[in-house]
Design a protein around this nucleic acid. Structure first.
Lengths: 188, 188
DNA sequence: TTATTTGCAAATCGTTTGCACCTTA
DNA sequence: TAAGGTGCAAACGATTTGCAAATAA
């Protein structure tokens, strides 16, 4: 059965029962990854990691850069890009794309295999889980001897708010009311 | 039940039973859209449309541009970009993104709501249908008063060929063998 | 005739890279 | 000290835009 979880609920989960300890776990994973790969721990990486773990949003590199800037204005965009990639390689961040051209990152440790509903009007996202999806994936994959590594379901449409706000939008002059991804506004 | 359909099968469907007539339908839709919007029919648009309808691949703008060039080398990239957008607005093309940075387009008239398995090794894609997915979408959407317009399931992993070709890849030094989307090679 | 389209070159946008200097192990 | 890391500016690749000339309605 599908188990929907709102972004808010996700937040509660992240900082509720095992909040600090899981953040600790992520930091450890990051530092282990750095060591194992023969890389170095730096103040910049620590700061960027901290800021990243302090949110549960879907941050773009630019978003994270802005947040980091507030704490240390000397850190450059490039370092944020590089650290984000590093965190992804370490497995504590995950890339998500909502069709607005920029890559976003979310924490990878919680809510495994969750998916997104993305409002094409306001960019708001809702996260949800579905174990049925795993079943579908495995069924399909088996038929093709395909080895699934990752999957992503995105549902584009109108969130409740935008639905109420723009009820006339549906009967526009378009023959087939297809979603134009290019219409998606800035995220959040 | 999920109904897998390979790219080849998709091809058969497109040109089999109702091949010519459906292409006709798409041309008509395009021209209607052009008229309705007060735009103009041009030789360039007709050519680009023809070439696009003549394939069932997931073409990038560049791919289509190359094909069009073979028939008329005077047509510019920009026109292809603009026509692709126009076809998307008309509802005969659909944007798909496989995580390699470039937007691809596929015909929108057949195989509604199909999804993709994308090989991160060679870029090969397999298309499939799943009515279960519709059920999941509607169930989730209803809980949030979300109005779904479009959804997209992508399964990233290794196709049968690449699986056989690189069996040792799994036990690499990575703790969690996460797929790095950035690794995805050129498509097809 | 007159709004629209075209192709080119230049501009944009997100992201990556080259490089000289700085820092960690 | 040696291997990496940092920030800046320049480079990139996909896509978009300004514009003057060309064309459909």
């Amino acid at each position: 059965m599908a188990q929907p979880v709102s972004t808010l609920t996700l937040n509660e989960r992240s900082t509720g029962n095992n909040g600090a300890s899981s953040v600790m776990g992520e930091k450890e994973i990051f530092h282990h990854h750095i060591q194992r790969a023969g890389l170095k721990r730096t103040a910049q990486r620590d700061l960027i990691l901290d800021v990243f773990l302090g949110t549960d949003e879907h941050l773009s590199s630019e978003d994270l850069y802005r947040l980091v800037q507030e704490k240390d204005p000397t850190i450059g965009q490039t370092t944020v890009y590089r650290t984000l990639k590093l965190m992804t390689e370490a497995g504590i961040a995950r890339e998500v794309r909502f069709g607005d051209g920029k890559t976003r990152y979310e924490r990878n440790s919680k809510l495994p295999h969750h998916h997104h509903m993305i409002c094409v009007e306001c960019g708001h996202t809702i996260e949800f889980l579905s174990s049925e999806l795993e079943a579908i994936q495995n069924e399909i994959a088996a038929k093709y001897r395909f080895e699934p590594k990752q999957h992503s379901l995105r549902i584009f449409g109108l969130c409740a708010d935008c639905r109420d706000r723009a009820p006339a939008r549906h009967n526009l002059e378009t023959v087939e009311p297809r979603v134009r991804l290019s219409l998606a506004r800035a995220h959040k």
